[in-house]
Design a protein around this nucleic acid. Structure first.
Lengths: 198, 198
DNA sequence: ATTCATTATTGACCACGGTCAGTTTTGTGT
DNA sequence: ACACAAAACTGACCGTGGTCAATAATGAAT
């Protein structure tokens, strides 16, 4: 119980993340290799795994950071009053989520927390996602007969559905936005759908 | 342009699938190793990859077959008239989909088709899933203001959402069934939710 | 039967994520 | 200054999915 963590620990970890970020900037998440990360950071391969449980843990952190930035942008905007406004606000985040198959795969794998004690960065952002969207659904123009959190979780489910279909080459000519809209119409405005007058 | 496909090809492929099936029966999809499959089938490793693009293609086929069997069972039953009946019918399939992380991962990856010309087995089963469920939603007790296929796709999205949350240890004590129900209530019976009388 | 193009098979090899016993560094107590 | 335990680091090594140039089997045409 004397020394616990780290002087150089933080420095090494920062170098690893910096190297990884540079690689992604130059090429992509898909082409990220642990060996290249440690080469650029100037450490041995084993060191990487003392800082990250596995490669996915690094991706979890990097991608989680990007999603968090998007949620900052989303939170900063005024509460959307229409489906189209929601689609506008969500589009940049969805574009990132669907930018690479590897990115979407990691997000899918980590969108539910891995374990109780260890909620990863991506899982945390999706808790935040539900929280932010819940705020839109209390006292708004959208359906008021449902728990706002449940509505938000539904939107999340439809975002994933729309993105998954987007990776199907058969449909990939349609923008994700257009694929998501019909779901949100039915999910957030059931009364309008029931009543032709709107 | 004389001989195309093959006598022994089918035989070898059958042996590979048979070996893989035996391994899964003895242990699990998680523990399936290509080297073990080829060892049991009595062929070289390279042979495996002339029959399957990659390991996932074998899993796609095996898991697709099982899902297809579940859809046979689902189709054979009478059309459900309530949310609970839907949950009853879907539970066995959901139980399989959530039985192993490895299984769910493959399903997620392949639930959208890989490419236009090559719709994999799992992708095909999810087209069939939507088709079967669409049948439930024409002229039934559920909402009639929406395209049945869209309703079915929504159910699919919620099934995935419920399963994904189930792999979150935080929530895994709740049956998937109970996690799915609130979504379906709001999705299939919006009018009921709006009108307290039901 | 023999040839020969087509197709299936082989297994050494590679790529890459991940492990671990051994070594070095670090900070603290004396 | 020195000793020493805790923490960080190392790199050879492993497991496993996937590749490919070389080889063998096949079957149709002669």
């Amino acid at each position: 119980m004397t020394t616990t963590t780290q002087p150089r620990t933080l420095k090494t970890r920062a170098r690893l993340i910096e190297a990884a970020t540079a690689i992604v900037a130059e090429s992509s998440f898909t082409d990220l290799r642990v060996e290249e990360v440690v080469r650029r950071a100037g450490v041995a391969k084993g060191t990487f795994f003392t800082h990250f449980k596995d490669k996915d843990a690094l991706l979890d952190r990097m991608i989680g950071g990007i999603i968090d930035w998007h949620l900052d942008q989303i939170s900063a905007q005024t509460t959307p009053e229409t489906i189209d406004a929601i689609l506008d606000i969500l589009t940049p985040l969805m574009t990132f989520m669907g930018s690479e198959r590897a990115v979407f795969d990691v997000i899918l794998r980590y969108s539910g927390a891995a374990s109780v004690e260890e909620i990863g960065p991506i899982a945390a952002t999706f808790e935040r996602f539900v929280h932010v969207l819940s705020g839109w659904f209390v006292d708004g123009p959208f359906r008021q007969d449902a728990d706002p959190a449940t509505l938000a979780e539904g939107v999340q489910a439809f975002v994933f559905q729309a993105l998954a279909l987007n990776f199907c080459a058969l449909n990939s000519h349609r923008p994700v936005r257009d694929r998501l809209r019909p779901y949100l119409e039915l999910w957030l405005h059931p009364a309008k759908a029931l009543d032709p007058q709107g």
